[in-house]
Design a protein around this nucleic acid. Structure first.
Lengths: 239, 239
DNA sequence: CAGTGGTCTAGACCACGAA
DNA sequence: TCGTGGTCTAGACCACTGG
């Protein structure tokens, strides 16, 4: 695996948190205990736990120790952005259907969207996400089959492509372009909104290491909110 | 100031970079040199420079050293989001006008927006930003006068309030809520778009340390894009 | 090859704040 | 009070890569 020890420690802790094994409020072992557990210096675990705190997964206070943070509000977090998780977190039933699927060589238009050279094999998918049966988001995705050859054989019947991809090839970098559009007839029909209604588009490109993996355009009804939080580098931040 | 040494070092380097004193491509002193310069251990400067690299201000390569990064593309970066900078970076002439200004006790509606208790003194501003004379964004801002008493005496004739605030009380945390709206008559008139046109709203709340400083709603014509980039914690990332 | 950043160690002192 | 995290040291070895 070859990854730095502090990354491995961070991932193990992260896994315990996101899987729910350690629920919000659960206290983590102290740095000293973690150092003993992993047989390393305290600074190494400190680096791992500090990264979790920067990511907002845990809260650290002197004497009180490090505890798993309450999950942030119900809105879509731009950083995470797994639609099934988002819908279920709002207490709604999640469903999806693959409306269209095509495997092809990237056209010039595709190439511009995904950031690959024309001619590279891609998988194009259109997916509708639903919450309590109501259209929630329309997803138009391109997957680089060079980066993810397994996608060719995947039916995407158990999991939508975003979640499937995240499990196999988690992104290391993502770029979102966000814009507002008036719904055209096609989008209005899919999302069951009035033609001309303002919709929010999130064009997202994801990399794994230096490789472009996927491009997705998510179109939401306009009253949906995207939420992004930023923490100025090096500052201690708010409570 | 009592701030940690690695923060002080990061800020000094950051200052040299954002001020343009060290232009893109300029090589920074090596960690060893910086450690000698500041009279501290190499790990301390390493922490500072690593933070700059995480923020994308510099790129680091073994043997080649650390160099000031090329500034990222021309679109609004959600993390930075200074409108004059954004407009000028696109090679357009920037202008703004304060359309409305009122000092008042926070109403219940204000309180919800800015995250303060009702009755706290706030300054409410409406500002129109222009690029080459064309409306670029409509800004509706609340400033906490408890956090920024100087704002009461400021005319905002040289600088728009966003830039002015950033210079006095830089945010340490920011939360953006992004949504799409159909322009109502008032917004359409201000932005000179058709009524009903899709507009992009960025509702932003900013903190300095634990204190709410300001809330701003920026409304853009829908074809404007907001761009956000994320780097997964602990990963090495793309080129 | 040699210099750079990347990681890690085994200590240390201190400030904070819950008990 | 006293355990916790926050910071810092003065070394170390290694991987990578430009010259």
């Amino acid at each position: 695996m070859d990854k730095p020890l502090y990354v491995a420690i961070r991932e193990r802790l992260e896994q315990a948190i996101v899987s729910g094994e350690w629920p919000p409020g659960r206290r983590l072992p102290s740095e000293k205990e973690l150092a003993a557990e992993y047989g390393c210096a305290r600074m190494t675990v400190s680096k791992a736990v500090t990264a979790l705190a920067d990511a907002g997964l845990v809260t650290r206070r002197r004497r009180a120790g490090t505890v798993v943070a309450e999950p942030r509000p119900r809105e879509s977090l731009l950083q995470i952005h797994d639609i099934p998780t988002e819908v279920r977190a709002a207490g709604r039933a999640y469903g999806f259907e693959v409306l269209d699927r095509a495997e092809r060589k990237a056209t010039a238009a595709d190439a511009g969207r995904i950031g690959l050279k024309p001619g590279q094999p891609v998988l194009a998918l259109t997916v509708l996400h639903r919450a309590d049966g109501t259209p929630f988001a329309l997803e138009e995705r391109l997957i680089s089959l060079r980066a993810v050859p397994d996608a060719r054989a995947e039916a995407f019947d158990a999991e939508p492509p975003g979640s499937w991809l995240q499990a196999r090839l988690p992104w290391t970098d993502a770029e979102h372009h966000i814009l507002a559009l008036n719904a055209d007839a096609r989008v209005a029909a899919r999302l069951e909104v009035d033609p001309g209604a303002a919709c929010l588009c999130d064009d997202r490109r994801s990399w794994h290491g230096g490789t472009v993996v996927t491009h997705v355009r998510l179109t939401y009804p306009g009253d949906r909110r995207l939420v992004a939080r930023f923490h100025a580098p090096g500052s201690r931040g708010k409570t």
